[in-house]
Amino acid sequence: MDPLSTLWETFFDWESMREALPEMLTVGLPNTLTLAVSAALLGSVLGMLLAVAGISRTRWLRWPARIYTDVFRGLPAAATILLIGVGLAPLGMQVWGPNPYPLGVLALSLIAAAYLGEIFRAGILSVEAAQLEGARALGFSWGEAMRLVIIPQGVRRVLPAWVNQLISLIKDSSLVYFLGLLASQRELFRIGQDYAANTGNQSALLLAGLFYLLLTVPLTHAVNWLDRRLRQGRPAAPPEPDTEPADLTPSGKDPR
């Protein structure tokens, strides 16, 4: 066999792919999505808390948020997942048994929270100070003004960055295989890798890669679309010319 066709068969052996496909679809894909989506949700909640702590006027909130962010952004994801997933395993064992998913999700969330916290913080800080003043002038407390007026606007502005983080999570979810997975707990990468290890043929792993691309490439395009839409604003009718009463004297109508 000539080297080129050997190379071709190493990556594009349809038989190996067909063999791995059912398990990828029924086990790997749902598991990958479970890991990524739960970590995105938990990470967003934690990230929002970090963002609010990060802009707090109290240094006892600001500093811990800063340190947390530096640590979890600075560590390799693999190290964090192992440290949490293995280090806390005895504790997890007593709470939910030998399932590595809760700690895997926790580790992924803690990493994502560090990035999301910075993203949310940038979004919140980008909202004009006049918005806070407008809300406070109505009688809202600082917390209410943040929750009802500032944060909703800030989050909207950083939605593209949020989707980027979701893409990272989909990819990083492959790292939970470090924690040891039962057959039914394997996600896309682990299934591909197992088939590849058993057969010595990389095609199943390449199929796993295609699944990741199927998830992440549309999301990248969604980011671009979202970004464009947020920049240009949603399609809306332009302001119409104003027709104002041109009378300065009291009309006797009580605006209250």
């Binding site: 104002e244 009463p245 041109a246 009378d247 300065l248 009291p250 009309s251 006797g252 009580d254 605006p255």
Partner: peptide
Amino acid sequence: KGVLAVMADLAAA
């Protein structure tokens, strides 16, 4: 003028 008119109404009220 439209805004001033609303304010004038309010003062008159």
